[in-house]
Design a protein around this nucleic acid. Structure first.
Length: 460
RNA sequence: GGAGAGGUGGCAGAGCCCGGUUGAAUGCACCUGACUCGAAAUCAGACAUAGUCGCAAGGCUAUCGGGGGUUCGAAUCCCUCCCUCUCCGCCA
């Protein structure tokens, strides 16, 4: 299963290269040799199919003669040598196919037309800004200082029981996390029309392939080791032996094939993997509150303090399945739904249109919402809302039947954080801090905090 | 963990014991046409997906949970893995 449509790539090679080139010259270069490989593959397929056709004809003749009671030995002998020849051609075709798949699976989605040019975060374009950063008459502190002073956040205990990049929340801090999750879910299900889902937090390999995390980004994920070591070795042997990506994708679980989800996008998008939806059902909007687990390999020394970059954090995710016609309008709506949370909590933010070079692997277009953090004096990503067009749908085989049409088409998938709860937590702590180190609770959140208006240090 | 049953097209469901025009009966849904002012009902027809060859018409190849094997030929036989269901055990 290809990430980009093979026929489309072949027919529009120059155009595809040009659009991929917007992500960087090295990306477009991945398609070098594509034509040669494709030619090799097709000629091997044609040869193999001709031989198979011959074999099938002979078999049909054998069947006819046997039914009539005639002798078929002469015909049966005709296939001598065919079998080996077929096997050789099929192997050639499979080898070429595998090489192409290996290349294509590494290639990211094509950027949408409305994506700005650029190579790094520097080139992202600010679309709009909401709210005014509050003027402090004292020096605002970062959340890790405030949290530890108030006794609602404990990194030492987390390091002891788990390791680096984990946190323990206490008392009102724990409740604040729970309040935020409930508040967000209520708004999305009540006002924005999303259905609430509680999905598994562990998924199989096929799901991760479907949303684009695998095969390229295995190093970012936590994989559950099978206590049965022999089973694991057996699985890896199979992977080597038959492991073209496509058959592995279909071969749902080789052993206990479980990975911790890096985002609810994975289980939610895969809800409809291999399904054919009715156009009447679309758009489908779902939301879920889940933990997210990220290895953060390669992030050593980055954001080491505080809650910004954790191995486990919680997030409310928004996912939509839409028709191609709806997708860009729905992308704007989904982004607005995430923004509505920030607005209700009165947290200043800005919306960034990511440039081609900063776009994620699977995305055609992404808006990042960046919240103002006075304790660190910067805007920080708190939500990422993307349109994947048919990229994930093709990999996960999610189709729909347009009304009045017989042929199926791939849906477009969208998702966004609505919001990352951990980062919302710290945004509240930093933006609502008072001179005495207490945190006032945003009005919208107070009902979810049992009426609590302020988090103060415990007296005891 | 133990024992059994099963996985077939959008869905339901035959075929598998006894391998041979079976890409797969039948029903439902969907689509087209007729009838109708329109709709329902009825009747008639069409109706899998992907790859590949071809300007096209149209061929050809593959696919009956995944992989492998036996055979001239596999949905049907053999091996293996996965999944689902039922019963027993254990457990939040």
């Amino acid at each position: 299963m290809l990430m980009l449509d093979l026929g489309y790539v072949r027919a529009n090679l120059a155009r595809v290269k040009e659009r991929l080139g917007r992500r960087g010259a090295d990306v477009a270069a991945m398609l070098d040799g594509f034509e040669v490989l494709d030619l090799k593959r097709r000629s091997a397929i044609t040869r193999a199919e001709m031989l198979k056709a011959e074999r099938n004809q002979i078999s049909a003749e054998v069947a006819k003669r046997k039914q009539k009671g005639e002798d078929a030995a002469a015909w049966m002998a005709r296939t001598r040598g065919l079998k080996e020849e077929i096997e050789r051609c099929t192997a050639d075709a499979a080898a070429a196919e595998q090489q192409m798949q290996a290349v294509l699976q590494q290639i990211p989605n094509l950027p949408a037309e409305s994506v700005p040019a650029g190579t790094s975060a520097e080139d992202n374009v600010e679309v709009r800004r909401w709210g005014t950063p509050r003027a402090f008459d004292f020096a605002p502190k970062p959340h890790w200082e405030l949290g530890e002073q108030l006794g609602i956040l404990n990194f030492e205990q987390a390091a002891k029981i788990s390791g680096a990049r984990f946190a323990v929340y206490w008392d009102a801090g724990a409740r604040l996390e729970r309040a935020l999750a409930n508040f967000m879910l209520d708004l999305h299900t009540g006002t924005h029309g999303y259905r609430e889902v509680l999905p598994p937090y562990m998924v199989n390999e096929a799901s991760l392939f479907g949303t684009g995390q695998l095969p390229k980004f295995a190093q970012d994920l936590f994989r559950c080791a099978d206590p049965d070591f022999e089973a694991q070795e057996e699985s890896e042997r199979r992977e080597r032996e038959y492991g073209d990506e496509d058959s592995r994708r279909k071969d749902r679980a080789l052993f206990n094939d479980h990975w911790m989800i890096p985002t609810a996008e994975v289980p939610l998008t895969n809800l409809y993997r291999d399904d054919i939806l009715d156009e009447k059902q679309l758009p489908i909007s779902v939301t879920a509150y889940t933990p997210c687990f990220r290895a953060e390999a390669g992030a050593y020394g980055k954001d080491v303090r505080g809650l910004v970059r954790q191995h486990q954090f919680q997030k409310v995710e928004l996912v939509k399945f839409v028709t191609p016609e709806q997708s860009y309008a729905e992308h704007e709506r989904l982004t607005a739904h995430a923004e509505a949370i920030l607005q209700a909590l009165e947290l200043p933010y800005r919306v960034m249109n990511l440039c081609a070079g900063d776009l994620g692997f699977s995305a055609a277009k992404t808006y990042d919402l960046e919240v103002w953090l006075p304790g660190q004096n910067l805007y920080r990503e708190i939500s990422s809302c993307s349109n994947f067009e048919a990229f994930q749908a093709r990999r996960a085989n999610i189709r729909y039947r347009p009304q009045g049409q017989k042929k199926t088409e791939f849906v477009h998938t969208l998702n966004g954080s609505g919001l990352a709860v951990g980062r919302t937590w710290l945004a509240i702590v930093e933006n609502y801090q008072q001179a005495d180190g207490s945190i006032s609770i945003p009005t919208a959140l107070q009902p979810y905090m049992g009426g609590l208006k302020s988090i103060e240090a415990r007296s005891s």
